[in-house]
């Protein structure tokens, strides 16, 4: 009977389209990040090493976060190296004895899966065997850092020159307020200087983890910023979070809730609590008197 029902009005479509567009933009941007990391560029070993490895390793420049790679092609077989560089997480999970030993030696910081293509892996192994040497990219030349400026960069009071996001959007650390920072990345109170030690500046210069690398590749920190942040992390990063912080957060939450409830009680203190029953009770009470 109802053959000609009015089509839904435009505004409802509009909201749907808006949501759809938002989702599409999100997906597209995610893909572009992945695309920027993955595809086979010219497999130039030196470039790959500079982009992906120097955050943790040197060749002949000493230990950083990870071991000095001078002579690594002689210490390990090519097969092992290829497997390790391609998928260190899988090897660690499989319990490879060499990998486990390295993991324990180097402060239990796992080497991230850098998602290199087989071409890139071959190139970087060739580069490591070629006798070239590198130094820690930043540690050598870092100017003196200012912990206060580092703190300002961390919490976002100062902006990074190249437009990178301030650390607090993903990380928390002691000394940036009771509520801390973001939860997307690890808490740097425990995972900061106290874990990475002297290797930290190199990591800051070229973060090796997939997430950090994607974020910082196009917006690198300047040497002064690295130095300031390093100084701040050295100061604020402790191996344990101060035990009262959790209590403080819990206390704040309880106080805040109590304040809100109190405010609501005050705001709606004159609300209508029924009319008929109170009227009857009032009248009956008056009669008794």
């Amino acid at each position: 009977m109802v053959e000609n029902v009015k089509p839904p009005s435009i505004p409802r479509y509009f909201l749907f389209l808006l949501t759809l567009t938002g989702i599409l933009i999100f997906i597209a941007s995610t893909f572009s990040v992945v695309a920027a990391m993955g595809p086979a560029q010219a497999a130039d070993g030196a470039t790959v090493f500079k982009e992906k490895c120097v955050g943790c390793h040197t060749i002949g420049g000493g230990k950083l976060v990870g071991p000095d790679l001078a002579g690594v092609t002689e210490r390990r077989t090519k097969e092992w190296l290829t497997k390790w560089i391609s998928a260190p997480d899988q090897m660690l999970a499989a319990g490879d004895p060499t990998a486990t030993e390295l993991f324990n030696t180097y402060n239990k910081i796992a080497m991230p899966n850098l998602q290199l293509t087989p071409d890139q892996v071959a190139a970087v192994i060739a580069y490591m065997g070629s006798g070239e040497t590198t130094t820690a990219s930043s540690a050598v030349a870092l100017p003196p850092g200012d912990a206060n400026a580092g703190r300002a960069y961390f919490v976002g009071d100062l902006h990074f020159a190249n437009g990178g996001p301030h650390c607090m959007s993903c990380h928390s650390i002691s000394g940036v307020g009771s509520l801390g920072g973001g939860n997307l990345g690890p808490d740097l109170t425990i995972n900061g200087y106290s874990k990475y030690g002297a290797g930290l500046p190199a990591f800051l210069a070229s973060p090796a983890t997939v997430t950090m690398n994607a974020v910082w590749k196009n917006t690198p920190l300047t040497p002064q910023e690295q130095a300031d942040l390093f100084a701040f992390l050295q100061e604020a990063s402790v191996s344990q979070r101060a035990p009262d912080t959790l209590l403080l957060i819990a206390g704040l939450a309880i106080l805040g809730a109590a304040a809100l409830i109190g405010l609501a009680q005050l705001r709606w203190s004159r609300r209508l609590k029924g009319v008929r029953k109170p009227m009857i009770e009032r009248t009956l009470a008056a009669k008794k008197r």
Partner: peptide, 14 residues
């Protein structure tokens, strides 16, 4: 401020 909570509504008992 009262949008989600209108305090002057009659109840079903009223």
């Amino acid at each position: 401020t009262n949008l989600f909570y209108n305090p002057y509504l009659p109840t079903i008992d009223d």
